Computed example of a mutant assay.
Amino acid sequence: MASPPLPPGKILRSLTRRYFTDGRIPKRALQEASRRREELLPLFLSEIEKFISASSKVQAESPTPVLLIFFVLGDWGDQRAYRPLARLIHCPEFTDHPGFESVFDMVGHRVIAAVFDGDPEPLFEIVRDLKAHKIARHNILVNALAMLEHREKVDRETVANFLIDVYEQLGDEPIVWLGWASLAARVGLSALRPLVVQAIAEERFDDFDIEEFDDAIAQPGSHELNEDFSTFGDAYEEMKAQFE
């Protein structure tokens, strides 16, 4: 006899935890949610908005389903999730959530690529925002935008114009500047070399020299599609890869 469907509230509770690695991966809830995407997508997006509107203390310390919802929405690849997820990533308490920051750094760009709706501006806004977490800003630069350009979802000219325009808005975080220079190199923007030289002269980096940029530009095949740029897959399998 088949098990009765899980109520939406029970699915949500199964996804809720304080830390990403708390307890077992709720496989049944994930499978049930995937079978009922149209029903559950509004509920999941509502939970994201609830997290965003909460105080920073609640965001950091209270159990939440958004850590696992992030994976589910990457699996579903629904463009309606793109802007809510961009607002979530904009939240430092999400990308720096205890125990989740390294997970986000590994998969964040792949989730973004899965739900991307064609407009990079929400990602540009995060990079510009000095209050956004430095890891999120770095990840969007060196991974998300590079992956979108590689898949021809964002054109190279758009990336180049953004990197030029954002130069005076990046602030003082060396890891963000490393993301900026790495993105320019990764997509082969040799015309930005003078700006990279200027940034080095201004001591924007902790450890980066123009030879690294030149070497990356000279080896266009060194940034071909690899595991880090792979299409986001099944939420359960993706979570298993992070738990193990």
Rank of each mutant, 00 (worst) to 15 (best):
V66T: 00
F208C: 07
R156E: 12
H150Q: 14
P8A: 04
L195Q: 14
V154G: 05
T95W: 11
I164V: 11
E211Y: 05
G221L: 12
N226F: 07
R36I: 07
E173G: 04
R35W: 12
H109V: 01
A160N: 08
I164T: 10
W76Y: 04
Q198Y: 09
I48S: 06
D105N: 14
G118K: 05
L6N: 06
L178F: 09
A54R: 06
R17Y: 05
N161V: 12
K240W: 01
Y167N: 03
G99N: 11
Q31K: 11
D207G: 08
V115P: 07
F71H: 04
A160E: 11
D214A: 01
L68N: 13
L189I: 13
L43I: 10
F208D: 09
F162W: 01
F104G: 12
H150K: 15
P42V: 12
Y167S: 06
L163P: 00
P8M: 03
R156V: 14
S3G: 13
L12N: 05
H97I: 06
R110I: 10
L45A: 05
Y82C: 02
G23H: 03
I52G: 01
H90Y: 06
P120W: 04
D78I: 12
P26H: 08
L73D: 00
F94M: 00
M147C: 14
G77E: 13
A54Q: 07
A54L: 03
Q219V: 13
H138L: 04
R28S: 10
R36G: 02
E125Y: 08
I25Y: 06
